[in-house]
Design a protein around this nucleic acid. Structure first.
Length: 568
RNA sequence: UGGGGCGUAGCCAAGCGGUAAGGCAGUGGGUUUUGGUCCCUCGAUCCCAGGUUCGAAUCCUGGCGCCCCAGCCA
């Protein structure tokens, strides 16, 4: 994993060429979210691209809210977005900016367009405008108001602004070409009347600029050099250029489009995400199963892993869908080197070491992270009664199962080699306890005679164990491409959340803070959830460890071990 | 039958006329007090068909397939 992005993509080529040719002396990009929803993985790609490009070229990147449609926008989103961008590891030196900061200038520039005969006030209603726009194969028809005198247009536009007309009564349109093959050039609407209170400008305005008009001009105002957006805006580029060339500015921002991010087993459209939240399919915007940045944060995904993911995904113009497994890989790679190890038993089975004296206990210094010597060690208490993972014991094991089974010797991590001598069951035949003998010579986990055991188990001393709730999350959608065969919600996975309430952990786990991610040895990475309270910890599974044993079992059709799901 | 894009290995993605990078997934093997990590191992002639060229994934022509556009959303 590396934040140094050495791989190339076409936008970086363009940026470097512009710098080399002197077209620009400094790269200025912007990340322009509309505050009408939470940021998600798709935005992470854009954030990484925009801020990353500015960072690596010594330029700057503005956070700019595209708040031109007060009907859908809300301050709640503004705060969430700022928090998420910061969490991704990026900062803006000035601002944040808002398109609404430019409403006055935008209005003046619109008057300028009118004066030059490039825009006019159209009295037609929405329906008429739609009908006269033509179709994909037929040209549109010009509005009867298209050739209105400049003075009249100016007057009407001023009165629109003054609030003299009701919503939808008139619009300001660019005067381009009703017969263009590009629908965006068929006299696109620049301003519409909306008597709606704006989150930031309040009631000062009742006319609001459309995206097409506001975006490019805001770019010009901010001195943006490279305006990066997704593919569906490619058709808007001619309009983007048309406007910026006719408005009184010397700035010449250029728009470049790249393919938006799509991921398997997930849905990334704002509309879908809002439905998931509103209809209660998830616990909220920050549900760990959500592809929102808030959700990923709560899931325990490190921002560095997300940046790495975006880097690996690349930037191109081909529509694509990345496998969710790539994100998992990035998360594991980062956490493997950074997350301290702890022993936690998710599905406890009691083990009594019959040869170990009752009442006695001892402490072992255990390494916190074999990948990071700096992480140090911690003491772990061992005693006669401990908890082991139920799935680590099988009375009648399949071939190559090298965990515990009758007569078999395994290692208890950092402690002793133990051999299963007896199995205790309840009336129902359920195994409730396994009894083992231990080899006192194997203190620490190695036998002095050099004999080897194939299995190493994690365990937790019974008397000092702390209980906790563990939430095992899996893909929200079972289908790789949700909705590809019907309704999206039919593809919601029934197994996306499994709650384990009886897990047992070594005491050191209590020393974590909310949001901290640790590795539960042999199981996966887990992040302490803010729902945690003293004595009632809650951990979310961020991602499971790779599990070649479970994978092999799946392949041979054998039932996998309980509580283990690596999932790709 | 309009306009704009895209098509390189299961999934991403380099390549910009000189004889197919890399990552993920998968395979086989080694190391291992996490069946984790780590280390080796194995895969494509580039949507198709013609053409230009000593030579083409890269240029030309013609097909085929997929995506986007008819919001006073962004």
């Amino acid at each position: 994993m590396s934040d140094v992005d050495d791989r190339n993509h076409f936008i970086r080529d363009i940026v470097r060429a512009d710098l080399a040719s002197g077209r620009v002396t400094q790269v200025v990009t912007r990340f322009p979210p509309e505050p009408n929803g939470y940021l998600h993985l798709g935005h992470a790609k854009s954030i990484t691209l925009n801020f990353g490009l500015a960072q690596e070229t010594g330029g700057r990147c503005n956070l700019r809210f595209d708040d031109t449609n007060p009907e859908k926008e809300d301050v709640e989103y503004i705060e969430a977005i700022e928090r998420d961008v910061r969490w991704m590891g990026y900062a803006w030196s000035e601002g944040p900016f808002f398109a609404s900061d430019y409403f006055d200038r935008l209005y003046d520039w619109a008057r300028h367009l009118v004066e030059a005969g490039h825009a006019y006030v159209d009295d037609q209603d929405a329906e008429t405008i739609r009908e006269t726009r033509g179709t994909l194969t037929e040209p549109g028809r010009e509005s009867p108001w298209r050739n209105r005198p400049v003075a009249e247009n100016l007057d009407l536009f001023a009165r629109m602004k003054a609030g003299e007309f009701p919503d939808g009564a008139r619009v300001l349109r660019a005067r381009i070409d009703m017969a263009s093959g590009n629908m965006n050039l068929r006299d696109p609407i620049l301003y519409r009347i909306r008597h709606v209170r704006h989150p930031r400008t309040g009631d000062r305005w009742c006319i609001y600029p459309t995206y097409d008009y506001a975006h490019g001009q805001s770019d010009a105002i901010e001195g943006i050099t490279h305006s990066l957006c997704t593919l569906e805006f490619a058709d808007h580029r001619p309009l983007y250029d048309w406007l910026v060339e006719r408005v009184p500015t010397r700035a010449r921002p250029r728009q470049y489009e790249f393919a938006r991010l799509a991921i398997t087993h997930a849905v990334l459209s704002k509309r879908r995400l809002i439905e998931l939240v509103r209809e209660g399919h998830v616990a909220g915007w920050d549900d760990p199963r959500m592809p929102t940045l808030a959700g990923q944060r709560r899931r325990g995904v490190p921002p560095a892993a997300l940046r790495d993911f975006c880097r690996r995904v690349g930037v191109a113009r081909a529509d694509s869908r990345v496998e969710a497994g790539l994100l998992d890989h990035c998360i594991r790679e980062y956490l493997n080197r950074h997350a301290p190890r702890r022993m936690v038993v998710l599905d406890p089975l009691k083990m009594v070491i019959t040869t170990y004296p009752e009442g006695r206990s001892e402490t072992f210094e255990t390494v916190n992270n074999p990948e990071d010597p700096q992480a140090g060690t911690r003491p772990v208490t061992f005693e006669r009664e401990i908890w082991i993972e139920r799935g680590d014991f099988m009375e009648d094991p399949p071939k190559k199962f090298f965990r515990l089974s009758p007569g078999r010797e395994v290692r208890l991590r950092s402690a002793y080699l133990v051999t299963c001598e007896e199995v205790i069951r309840d009336e129902g035949g359920e195994v409730v306890e396994v009894r083992c003998s231990h080899d006192p010579e194997s203190r620490g986990g190695d036998a002095p005679d050099g004999r080897r055991v194939k299995g190493t188990l994690h365990w937790v001393a019974a008397s000092t164990a702390i209980g906790l709730e563990v939430r095992l999350y899996d893909h929200l959608f079972a289908a790789a491409v949700p909705g590809s065969e019907g309704d999206v919600f039919d593809d919601l996975s029934p197994d996306s959340l499994q709650i384990l309430s009886g897990a047992k952990a070594e005491p050191a786990l209590a020393d974590t803070k909310d949001g901290e991610t640790v590795q539960f040895e042999r199981q996966g990475y887990f992040c302490r959830d803010p729902d945690s309270r003293p004595g009632a910890l809650v951990f979310n599974r961020t991602v499971g460890l790779r599990d070649s044993w479970a994978q092999a079992q799946r392949k041979t059709g054998t039932t996998g071990t309980a509580g283990r799901k690596a999932e790709s």
